[in-house]
Design a protein around this nucleic acid. Structure first.
Lengths: 339, 339
DNA sequence: CTGAAAGCGCTTACAG
DNA sequence: CTGAAAGCGCTTACAG
């Protein structure tokens, strides 16, 4: 650490002006004479002045920083899915000349006043929460103090959120299978404490009904958005005598787990069973067969959520705001007509 | 924003003590009587007090935050490789009860006083820079003011760094190919403005020499750590009459690009040509054939660099510190004996 | 366009 | 164990 960092006062002394004038130059108020501005900038450069942003924050009550809560999953807190959302957030944050503070969090374990204490800490001007769980008590506190925050991929009408059209996504998948000729369609659900998982499940049920397809409880299994869990749970599907001809999985990792299972029971994709995933993560186009999946526009989800947050911070929109982003079916080789 | 957030003074008034005493309670100095401590905590809870961390930072000159510079690559600033490093950094940061500020950066474009201005801003107590380029002018400034910082995966003896044993990694790969019986081994280099790429190339040359293998300039191609570039550049290898029997690629993405090329020229991996990559990214175990590669301990690299940074911040070690982490050869199906 | 005064909400460094 | 004083380095809100 430099022992004595120059301050506004140091420059003011040398330039023979008040430190207020120097402050104006660095906060770009453009109301200082050209002459003095140049003199001040020259001196600043010479003595190596850089503003103390903490001091600035304390007095103007703006941190110019947003906080992003990201779920820790699978030991690694960032899977590819979240990485892309984060990337979108980061792009917009830089456009707005803001900084980004990361809060990795285990939503299940964290005490409920974490959000509030960070909101009250003045460290950030707004918060984005990626994939919170249902019934998160902390959110109500944030709303109560009118702190700007946006939920990402968590649909709760009480709050601001940016979410994927999960309903449409699941519908697209089932519809596509139906049109291929499938009538026996099983479903692999995600973690039921996330609205993503709930919405996809409900849309699966609804779409089956719409097409007049049979709904069978034993054709729904629960994989908790995990490849391994999906692999384990999917054994049940193959113990029954009545095999589905297609399986729609709530995310790509689970689809990969199910494909492994299918291989292990001696069947083949898509010849015996068609598989559709959800997300379109990078691996999905590399595996064999490549995975048909519902693509979420991940980095756009990040961008939109950051844009919304800045609108809230700048009071350009009033809560609650709800945005749904569109999905797209990526057809690859894990789906075909039934035998 | 809450209109009037309670401050230390508010609690002090109600508790009939000085705000200094209240401050002591919240900074956990443990030198306040049990009785008063409890009274203060009770009042704080009742009126919803949460400390203003910005104010605390200004007066005690500690931000309790570290900054991490991450390269923006491939439009998405975070590829899987960086994600894992970041995850390791984040784990250690939480252990030390610090916060984490993210600075996505294009190292080639950024003006050179960015590091310095952030170091001087008091926003962070230390900095980790992931994959800087050779000849980055800004680093010298940081060193001059003795600001704690650590380079990740960039070997520059002037500064603190945590790097992979690239030399050993490349040696392991070549050695393995040699033992399989390969004598004609080509090399795909990364971006030559990164020491990672340089070190792997040098080790390739050195190891060839060690085994008495022929070094041919036309067997070295440059893929800039990009799948597409590697695909493009690798065409040259197949225009020559003298084909290699194995290709060692400086990263997995390039290995994937080269494998595509091999397929497109009608050859097959590993039957005609063996392929080895570097990194062990997630896809590498999913592609067909699965990729033999030199595994970097990515999240450990993150952990070690954060631990080193905290040691520097707490003056437990003195710069320059250089750490190399071990690599491991993951043998999969993209390598076999030559025909 | 410029400045004097007051303040942001904490902690440091004494002192007792 | 507790407190009075001063200060961290800025900006706000006047005033001229």
């Amino acid at each position: 650490m430099a022992s004595n960092k120059p301050t506004l006062q140091d420059i003011a002394d040398k330039a023979k002006v008040s430190r207020m004038t120097v402050s104006r130059v660095f906060s770009e108020k453009n109301n200082v004479s050209k002459e003095t501005t140049e003199k001040i900038k020259k001196i600043a450069k010479k003595i190596g002045y850089h503003p103390n942003l903490i001091a600035r924050s304390l007095s103007n009550r703006k941190s110019k920083t947003i906080g992003v809560f990201v779920p820790k999953t699978r030991h690694l807190f960032l899977d590819i899915y979240i990485t892309q959302i984060l990337s979108g957030i980061s792009d917009v944050t830089q456009e707005f000349d803001y900084r980004l503070m990361l809060f990795p969090i285990d939503y299940k374990k964290e005490k409920s006043d974490l959000y509030l204490s960070i909101a009250m800490s003045h460290l950030v001007d707004g918060i984005i929460l990626i994939k919170t769980k249902v019934n998160d008590k902390g959110l109500e506190e944030l709303k109560k103090i009118k702190f700007p925050f946006v939920l990402v991929n968590h649909r709760d009408n009480t709050y601001n959120f940016v979410d994927t059209s999960n309903e449409k996504g699941a519908k697209l998948a089932i519809e596509y299978l139906y049109k291929l000729g499938h009538r026996k369609i099983a479903f692999v659900a995600g973690s039921m404490d996330e609205t993503n998982a709930i919405d996809r499940l409900n849309s699966y049920k609804k779409t089956l009904k719409y097409f007049g397809l049979p709904y069978r409880k034993e054709w729904i299994i629960y994989g908790e958005f995990s490849k391994e869990k999906a692999y384990e749970a999917s054994i049940e599907l193959f113990n029954s005598k009545n095999l589905p001809t297609a399986i729609f999985c709530s995310d790509d990792y689970m689809a990969i787990g199910v494909m492994e299972r299918i291989k292990n029971v001696g069947l083949s994709v898509p010849k015996d069973i068609s598989i559709i995933g959800f997300d379109d993560i990078e691996i999905s186009s590399y595996i064999k067969p490549s995975l048909t999946t519902v693509r979420q526009p991940m980095s756009m989800i990040g961008e939109k959520s950051a844009e919304l947050l800045f609108d809230l911070i700048n009071k350009k929109r009033t809560p609650p705001i709800h945005e749904f982003l569109d999905v797209e079916l990526k057809i690859r080789r894990s789906t075909s007509k039934p035998k």
